[in-house]
Simulated assay, not measured.
Amino acid sequence: MDEPLEEIRDYVRTVFRDAGAHGLDHVQRVTLLCEALGAREGADMSILIPAALFHDIARPREEETGVPHEEEGARMAESFLRSIGYPDDRIAGIAHAIRAHRYSTGIAPETLEAQILSDADKLDAMGAVGIARTFMQAGERGGGIADATGHFHEKLLQLSGRMYTESARVLAQRRHAFLAAFLEALDDETDGTVTLP
């Protein structure tokens, strides 16, 4: 499987030229999480790892056209995988995992591989890296601290209770605790008062 994976990685790198909240660095972290979670949970890595590499491939297109990246990404993955002769019996599972990974999509991940990808994507939105990504995203959209803290409350603080796998739940508890502690400190520092020791 190493040769097709290298072709997939090369293709994904051509799409993500810049870093960002949903850039190549995010894809690489999600893939590493999938490798660790997949090994622990007994996933089919020939489905999981390509799905992780492709999961945000259409983010740039979504920003340009408004087409949901999970749908367009699944289509792009299917097309590319067929073009390199990837086994047909794996492609449907990869496409399903991509379609079901998004927090707000409403598509339930029906396979272990789709559940792990969903978990890994959510884990990368939590903890220290989740904090960094949230501020990056706020800046990318011209927002500030209030926009970032709104995102923490609307979405990120809800993620730990939405993990599918036991391995992800353990990681999520740690990352959630860090996120909550950071948010409490940030709220203290931005509430409009200053308390001197």
Rank of each mutant, 00 (worst) to 15 (best):
L123C: 12
T193H: 12
R40W: 03
V194Y: 15
S46D: 13
V30N: 05
L179I: 06
T31L: 06
K155D: 15
I57C: 02
V129A: 13
Y11T: 08
S83Y: 07
P60W: 03
A108K: 04
R61H: 15
E71L: 13
H26L: 12
A138F: 09
I47E: 05
V27F: 01
R102A: 02
A148P: 11
S160V: 07
G85S: 08
Y86R: 11
L32C: 14
A77P: 11
I91A: 01
V170R: 07
H26Y: 05
G93K: 04
E62Y: 04
H176L: 09
A114N: 00
L157I: 11
A77T: 11
M126W: 04
A180Q: 09
L123Q: 08
R99E: 07
L24S: 01
A128R: 15
G85Q: 05
R162N: 12
E78H: 08
H101R: 01
E184F: 12
P60S: 10
S167Q: 04
E6I: 13
A19Q: 14
R29D: 06
A138Y: 12
I47H: 02
D147A: 09
P4R: 06
A100Q: 04
V12C: 08
I49T: 02
L156R: 10
P4N: 08
I116E: 01
D56W: 00
I98A: 03
L171S: 07
A95L: 06
E6M: 09
D121R: 00
E166D: 15
A95W: 08
I49A: 04
G66C: 11
A77V: 09
E184N: 15
F16N: 06
K155G: 12
R102P: 05
T134M: 14
E110V: 04
D188T: 12
L81Q: 00
P4Q: 01
G73Y: 00
T105S: 12
E35K: 04
V12F: 06
G143M: 10
P197N: 15
Y164H: 11
L81H: 00
A51C: 06
L53H: 15
A95H: 11
D121P: 03
A138E: 07
D56P: 06
Y11D: 07
F80T: 12
A92K: 03
F54D: 01
V15D: 08
A36V: 02
M76P: 05
D119V: 03
A108E: 08
P60T: 04
D121V: 01
D187N: 09
I57E: 02
L33A: 08
A168W: 00
A39F: 14
I8N: 02
T165Y: 01
M136H: 08
A100W: 06
R99M: 06
Y11P: 07
R90G: 01
A128F: 15
M163N: 03
